[in-house]
């Protein structure tokens, strides 16, 4: 569940000075210092230290071991599989997100709130359960198991299962970003375009899309990060076959369980870099979205 991440643009700049120059909204200095110390100590302990630990552990045995761990064939295969899973799931969920947002935000129908809740459902399901549901459907003992075996198709313990599980856990990202955004923007502009003779596709492409592009990008960035980093759901359906059904996070687990700590952390550092790049991109999108709001009359 990443329910708390969404592109919210505050009308006011977050400037602490405004509060500190006002006697009514100012705390005594000792209160301020205590809160700052507590907050930042907690932040350093729980966020900064784990992040630093990844990189120091990865480089503990030197650069040579680090690079060897990354270019080893099993590692390369896991990178490929991770990219494949993201390359399938992100576009699928992007198309879904846009369709769902268009239907929900630009039209009226009964049961809209229920539909929004159902779209959010994958966020509140444990990743392990997310993997399990596909095992129950496509596994050897599942509903379609015997039929799949007859046709010699493999979904569970194979690449399709990994892709399916990834699609499931990243399902709501784009939709939940776009729906509130498109609802807030209303329909006037689209209706004007349609009345003036634009086709549905033209209306979407020239009117709606420019208005929601930052929200869309934001959803895609988060969706991609989760797709590449998912562990629990993928772990259930993967079967852990080295070089074949291991994604990057699963490869980290295998190395770690084999006590190859330096290699495990080397591969983990790739994922940590991905996380940092995600945060930078996210910040950039927030900044551009903010600028776009300011420019608008």
């Amino acid at each position: 569940m990443a329910g708390a991440t969404s592109l919210t643009i505050s009308a006011k700049p977050a400037s602490g000075g405004r509060y500190q120059s006002n006697p009514a909204t100012r705390e005594a200095p000792w209160v301020r210092w205590t809160l700052l110390t507590l907050g930042l100590a907690f932040f350093a302990l729980f966020l900064i230290m784990p992040l630093l630990a990844v990189f120091t552990e990865a480089l503990r045995k030197g650069f040579q071991v680090y690079f060897d761990a990354l270019v080893e064939p099993d590692a390369l295969a896991s990178i490929q599989l991770t990219l494949l899973a993201a390359l399938v799931s992100v576009p699928l969920n992007l198309v879904f997100g846009v369709c769902a947002a268009w239907a929900i935000a630009k039209h009226d129908f009964r049961g809209k709130q229920l539909l929004i809740t159902l779209i959010d459902l994958p966020f509140s399901v444990s990743p392990v359960v997310a993997g399990l549901i596909y095992v129950l459907l496509f596994g050897a003992q599942g509903w379609f198991g015997p039929w799949l075996q007859e046709h010699d198709w493999k979904i569970i313990f194979a690449v399709p299962g990994i892709v399916l599980a990834t699609v499931f856990v990243t399902f709501p990202f784009v939709a939940r970003e776009l729906i509130p955004l498109m609802q807030a923007q209303g329909r006037d502009e689209e209706e004007a375009a349609t009345v003036l003779g634009a086709s549905g596709w033209q209306t979407f492409w020239y009117v709606t899309l420019p208005n929601v592009k930052w929200g869309l990008l934001y959803g895609v960035i988060l969706c991609n990060a989760r797709a590449m980093g998912e562990f629990g759901a993928v772990s259930v359906v993967s079967g852990h076959i080295r070089g074949q059904t291991n994604t990057l996070p699963l490869h980290v687990e295998i190395l770690y369980n084999e006590y190859q700590f330096a290699a495990a952390f080397a591969v983990a550092s790739l994922l940590a870099i991905l996380a940092l790049v995600t945060l930078v991109l996210k910040q950039f999108v927030e900044w551009r979205a903010h600028a776009a709001v300011k420019e608008a009359p």
Binding site: F43, L51, L248, E253, A268, L271, A272, A275, L279, K282
Partner: peptide
């Protein structure tokens, strides 16, 4: 920086967080 890094647990794959915390 603090504001941006608050979201790290959303972005960092859980397996990476797990082994990092264990190492700590």
């Amino acid at each position: 920086l603090v504001d941006a890094l608050i979201d790290l647990p959303f972005a960092l794959p859980t397996a990476v967080a797990g082994i990092a915390l264990t190492a700590l």
